[in-house]
């Protein structure tokens, strides 16, 4: 319809020219699309190659954990000639104490630490993000400064303190600090998130006579589940992998966490337990990988929720 109107309105040779330039434009667009498609294919090839490189060490670890001892260092092939699952069963019992104990120990420390981190850090974050009190800016600055303090600087006095309290060789030095909001990173993360929650919600609740604790519990926390989830996953993984603190505070092999137990394999190096060592190493990564997959979903959901407003 429209073209008819235009055709009537303009001279034929002008029309011809317009058609011609439209064709050129179309051609150009096609070419550009083609080029960008090709660029995208190159990009995918590059990214896939890079992914393989990034994952190769993990594949190698997994493959080696299944290989017979003499094959680990002699062949580049990732595929074992036979699947030696007993590296896992033997490795589980290879140390004087069974890995059942080490996993139980790690689980206790991790669960308690995550609970501690979430509670104490969300408390502090709520105060910094929502409540008024004198000295707030100063305390916030101090809190941010603790982010850069290396654990090594406070290590020795903390050790002396915990030794005098009789806490060495218990899990208290690993767990109690997490109930005291010692991980400033999580406070910072939660403060950032809490600040995005509309203030009108707390103000309305306050007018209705809600106490600050009620507001924290009934409004801020339920609306911060993505941030809490993120903090929980990070703290879970970090505590699970934590090495230095257990190394210092746990001397009795019965109380060892998984990373300390893995280190014991290194002392037996050369006694052909590589397969078992790799099997137990691989196994220790499995919880992290599982939680990483869950964490991915959580992040995507978190982004989707916040993107809706």
């Amino acid at each position: 319809m429209k073209t008819n109107v235009i055709e009537k309105a303009v001279e034929p040779d002008v029309l011809e020219e317009m058609r011609h330039s439209a064709e050129i434009a179309h051609e150009l667009r096609l070419r550009q699309q083609q080029r960008s498609r090709r660029a995208r294919i190159y990009k995918h090839i590059f990214l896939i190659g890079m992914s393989v490189m990034m994952l190769y060490p993990l594949f190698w670890l997994f493959a080696s954990s299944l290989k017979p001892e003499n094959e680990i260092f002699n062949t580049l092939s990732l595929w074992p000639s036979e699947f030696n699952w007993d590296n896992y069963t033997k490795g589980w019992e290879a140390l004087p104490i069974s890995f059942t104990v080490f996993y139980a120990n790690s689980a206790i420390v991790t669960v308690l630490s995550v609970i501690g981190n979430l509670l104490s850090c969300s408390f502090a974050a709520y105060a910094f993000a929502r409540l008024q009190f004198s000295g707030k800016n100063l305390f916030f600055a101090l809190m941010m400064m603790t982010l850069m303090i290396p654990y090594h600087v406070v290590l020795i006095p903390q050790y002396v303190l915990f030794l005098n309290l009789g806490w060495v060789d218990t899990y208290l030095p690993l767990v109690v600090p997490r109930f005291l909001a010692s991980e400033a990173f999580f406070i910072f993360l939660m403060v950032q998130f809490f600040r995005q929650i509309p203030r009108e919600l707390d103000e309305a609740a306050m007018i209705d006579g809600c106490s600050p604790f009620k507001i924290y519990w009934a409004i801020i926390l339920p609306l911060s589940l993505p941030a809490m989830g993120t903090a929980a996953i990070f703290s879970l993984i970090w505590v699970w992998e934590d090495f230095l603190a257990p190394l210092i505070y746990l001397n009795d092999i019965k109380s060892y966490t998984v990373p300390l137990a893995l280190r014991l394999f290194l002392d037996q190096e050369g006694q052909s337990v590589y397969g078992q060592m790799f099997a137990m190493s691989m196994l220790s990564l499995v919880p992290v990988i599982i939680f990483f997959v869950a964490f991915q979903k959580l992040i995507v959901r978190g982004i989707a929720t916040s993107g809706m407003k």
Binding site: F123, L142, V154, P212, F213
Partner: peptide
């Protein structure tokens, strides 16, 4: 009344900061 709630929520952090960070430093 003005500062109470803030300090209560910050109490764990205060303990941690003085006992595990500033004190040890």
């Amino acid at each position: 009344a003005r500062n109470g709630p803030g300090y209560v929520f910050l109490l764990p952090w205060f303990l941690g900061f003085f006992l595990l960070a500033l004190g040890p430093i």
